[in-house]
């Protein structure tokens, strides 16, 4: 299994209250799956996403990624895992505003220590994959929303990670652009990538193979749809 999660809990102490944002989740996700995580706000999907993305560590439970436990790693090791194993796509794109598309896509390679020449070559190939080679020298402010998100996808793909984590990737896009973007995700999935996507839109989730529904920090349902 690519991802194995056992008894996962994330508990926050807010004053005297204990809030279980994730209240015991068991989950397995295999290679080349395409999973949507759905649920109302406050259902714990963002927290689960953060833990799966190694941005956060669980309070209890185990998380195995590619067979090795990552639930108890220190900040530097988590940074390493994020760099090599995980590609993020955010709702708000989160591109560096002063950097052009190429530089944005190169960023994970910078922190992987790849030399400048190689970086540029790889980044251009990935930009080609999302169809934005001609926008390589443009800054995010000079790109449309859909183009920005495609740059973000290229950035997520550039280190060839084990998982692509997308958090409401179409949330800031109109439905037509959203559909176009989903086509890009489909392509990525078809080429062998594993995608986990948080969304609250049914017609976006429809593109995936499997839908996880969360409620109150627990998995309510887990269905394979395609």
């Amino acid at each position: 299994m690519l991802i194995t999660v056992k008894g996962l809990k994330k508990i926050y102490d807010v004053g005297s209250q204990r809030i279980e944002a994730v209240a015991g989740v068991d989950l397995e996700i295999g290679k080349n799956e395409y999973v949507s995580i759905m649920g109302p706000s406050g259902s714990g999907k963002s927290t689960l996403m953060n833990i799966l993305g190694c941005l956060d560590t669980p309070t209890e439970g185990k998380y195995y990624l590619n067979g090795s436990e990552v639930s108890n790693l220190d900040d530097d090791r988590l940074a390493y895992i994020r760099n090599r194993e995980i590609g993020f796509v955010f709702q708000t794109f989160n591109l560096l505003p002063r950097a052009n598309s190429l530089q944005n896509v190169e960023l994970p390679l910078v922190y992987a220590g790849v030399s400048a020449g190689k970086r540029k070559r790889i980044a251009m190939e990935v930009l080609d994959l999302v169809g934005l080679v001609d926008r390589a020298m443009h800054r995010p402010s000079e790109l449309s929303g859909g183009q920005r998100q495609r740059v973000a996808i290229a950035r997520a793909l550039v280190n060839n990670p084990s998982i692509i984590l997308a958090d409401e990737p179409t949330g800031n896009l109109d439905s037509k652009t959203g559909e176009e973007l989903m086509a890009v995700f489909n392509k990525i999935h078809e080429s062998g990538n594993t995608i986990i996507m948080v969304t609250h839109e049914e017609n976006v989730a429809r593109h995936s193979m499997r839908i996880l529904r969360l409620r109150d920090g627990k998995i309510e349902s887990d269905k394979i749809i395609n």
Partner: peptide, 22 residues
């Protein structure tokens, strides 16, 4: 996009020599 994944594999695995210089 028929051979996309193999493209990607070729792209970065093994390229990460991790030099602080970058």
């Amino acid at each position: 996009m028929t051979n996309g994944k193999s493209d990607l594999k070729r792209l970065s695995r093994g390229d990460t020599e991790n030099s602080g210089g970058a």
